[in-house]
């Protein structure tokens, strides 16, 4: 069975920690970091990287376009 693995790269410095990507993620991949960026926002990050399927939902809802998405098929 073909399986899909994905990964996101968040621009930590530009993320405003709004949390919309966390809700949009269907696989609970994303969480907000305990650390803050230089503006004081708890930025988004892959809390469960193995769960990511590269569906781009997070990137679509991100108001600041700080998420880049990668996806690869694994057999």
């Amino acid at each position: 069975m073909a399986k899909v693995r994905g990964a996101i790269v968040v621009d930590n410095e530009l993320c405003k920690g709004c949390g919309l990507c966390v809700v949009a993620c269907p696989t609970n991949t994303i969480g907000l970091a305990k650390e803050v960026n230089s503006k004081g926002y708890n930025y988004a990050y892959m809390e469960n990287p193995e769960a990511c399927i590269g569906c781009v939902n997070c990137a679509l809802v991100c108001p600041d376009s700080v998420i880049t998405v990668y996806k690869v098929k694994v057999s």
Binding site: G54, T68, Y70
Partner: peptide
């Protein structure tokens, strides 16, 4: 995974 050829968004 994070490679140019796998970029989707």
């Amino acid at each position: 995974i994070i490679r140019e050829e796998n970029l989707v968004y």
